[in-house]
């Protein structure tokens, strides 16, 4: 469901359909979180993505008029996809090099032995996550709060109706 939704997102040509497929994919990822024992992450995923991000995307798509027109202001038809034979050649070349580098990086991870003691399946992680956030990762927590404040102010400033300049 997750992978199918993700593939459908990138292949569907209608933006609304892509957004709904994204919602399905996000639900699938939330289910995967629940399966691997991250209950708080599953709940956060559902609340933040399904409740916030997808609704925001739908609003943006509707405000910008769905798929939009395909003719730009010069009267030329916009191509939906890009690239020709040369760009695809270079993309494949870059993909090969990147995969080699990634193989080198994850070789140590592949050799690592999985730990024997696994987190208990029904262990509630919320308490430990809260303690960790307030002690070990307090700096990142504060930085993310400042980031969210900045994003709020930035989004408000960007989408504010612009005043007429009196030059």
């Amino acid at each position: 469901m997750t992978i199918g939704g993700a593939v459908a997102v990138v292949y569907s040509h209608n933006l609304m359909h892509a957004c709904l497929y994204l919602l399905a994919s996000l639900f699938g990822v939330a289910g995967l979180y629940a399966v691997i024992g991250a209950d708080f992450l599953a709940a956060t995923q559902l609340v933040v993505y399904a409740g916030g991000v997808v609704i925001l995307m739908l609003f943006a798509i509707m405000l910008t008029g769905g798929t939009g027109n395909r003719i730009n202001r010069y009267g030329l038809e916009k191509i939906a996809s890009m690239g020709n034979k040369k760009t695809y050649f270079f993309a494949g070349f870059a993909a090969i090099i990147t995969s080699l580098i990634l193989l080198k990086i994850i070789a140590s991870v592949l050799r690592a032995q999985p730990t024997n003691k696994v987190l208990a399946a029904n262990d509630v992680t919320v308490n430990k996550l809260g303690v960790l956030l307030a002690t070990d990762h307090i700096l990142a927590f504060e930085i993310s709060s400042v980031l969210l404040l900045g994003a709020l102010i930035g989004a408000a400033v960007i989408s504010r109706p612009r005043k007429e300049r009196h030059d």
């Binding site: 933040v48 916030g52 943006a60 993310s144 994003a151 930035g154 989004a155």
Partner: peptide, 18 residues
């Protein structure tokens, strides 16, 4: 993962505003 979700939410809001 939690911080990645936070950053994705912030990025989505600013990007859609733009």
């Amino acid at each position: 993962s939690l911080f990645i979700i936070v950053i994705a939410a912030a990025e989505a809001s600013v990007g859609l505003g733009i």
